[in-house]
């Protein structure tokens, strides 16, 4: 604490009035806040506004519709399909991805040979552009592609993963699990390194096995990180867009139309910006509700 004390004294001596400090604080905050306002806050308010209009980009006049867009959403079959797809996608991806990330981090935290190599290998998909990974996976999933030729060795019939309506969504889920578990592995690694070694040593003395250590020390101790990871990946899953855009265009037969993709389609393909905005607001609402529920029933720190 000595150094902290020293700093305090130094601050007092060199530094300035409160007013000046505030000036600097706002000077530094000004640009980020302005950028956030221009690119985030104002657009959010704007899209909320236009969701009440029959807003068409090229029309000279926009008609006010009130809540009619929202009423239409509730009768829109494709919207329900998109919502179902998104929920299925999230349910499929988030738990597997979180568990895989934690498991990878746990393994990477051990002293094993080639640890740095594996860490890099698992993290590379996270820093690769999603468009690039999507294109690679289009090739892997194709009928004469890598996945089928591997499965063919075990006697499975070739399946066209992305054009078969039963496997298209699962294929995109698998891709996403692969790309993002590496990313969340890093979060977990940071969390793991904060767990004091003494806990493990004590457990070892008591005769706890590796598995017991994992379930009774590691898992509870990284709970705040788990919370962060689950929230982030929930939001990411609800917004999944680029993989769908590149790999399947929402097809076949809307099997991979997700909510974010449907928003895009309405706004920019069907010339209906207002309706697109309304679907985006509904999506935002759903994400908010899910996050609140999660916070209430699965708090980051229950102890």
């Amino acid at each position: 604490m000595v150094s902290g004390y020293g700093l305090k004294i130094k601050m007092k001596r060199n530094s300035s009035t409160k007013k000046e400090q505030q000036f600097w604080a706002f000077t530094f905050l000004f640009f980020p806040l302005m950028l956030l306002a221009i690119f985030v806050f104002i657009p959010i308010l704007f899209s909320l506004g236009i969701s009440f209009f029959n807003w068409e980009l090229m029309a000279s006049q926009q008609n006010f519709l009130g809540v009619n867009n929202y009423i239409e959403i509730f009768g829109d079959k494709i919207f329900y399909k998109a919502m179902l797809n998104t929920v299925l996608y999230t349910i499929g991806v988030v738990p597997i991805q979180t568990m895989l990330a934690l498991f990878l981090a746990f393994v990477m935290n051990q002293k094993i040979r080639g640890r740095v190599f594996f860490r890099t290998a698992f993290y590379i998909p996270a820093v690769t552009s999603s468009v690039v990974t999507s294109i690679i996976f289009v090739a892997i999933y194709s009928k004469e592609g890598l996945l089928n030729s591997i499965l063919g060795n075990f006697g499975f019939a070739a399946n066209d993963w992305l054009t078969n309506p039963h496997t298209a969504l699962i294929s995109i889920m698998m891709l996403n699990i692969w790309t993002t578990s590496g990313y969340f592995m890093v979060s977990f690694l940071a969390g793991l390194q904060n767990i004091p070694n003494s806990l493990y040593e004590a457990a070892k003395l008591e005769g706890a096995s590796r598995r017991q250590q994992f379930w009774h020390i590691t898992v509870p101790m990284v709970r705040p990180v788990t919370y962060f990871v689950v929230v982030m990946s929930l939001i990411g899953c609800f917004q999944v867009f680029d993989q769908v855009f590149v790999m399947s265009d929402g097809g076949p037969n809307n099997a991979t139309t997700t909510m974010a993709y449907y928003v895009y389609q309405n706004a920019f393909r069907y010339f209906r910006l207002g309706y697109g905005a309304a679907t985006a607001i509904v999506l935002a609402g759903i994400i908010m509700i899910v996050t609140v529920i999660q916070k209430k029933y699965f708090p980051p720190n229950p102890y």
Binding site: G251, P252, N253, N254, R269, F271
Partner: peptide
């Protein structure tokens, strides 16, 4: 028809060919 006609016919064609 609104551009959406294309998505609808495309989906239907896919349903016929794939399903």
């Amino acid at each position: 028809y609104n551009e959406r006609w294309y998505s609808i016919t495309q989906s239907a064609m896919q349903a016929i060919f794939y399903e």
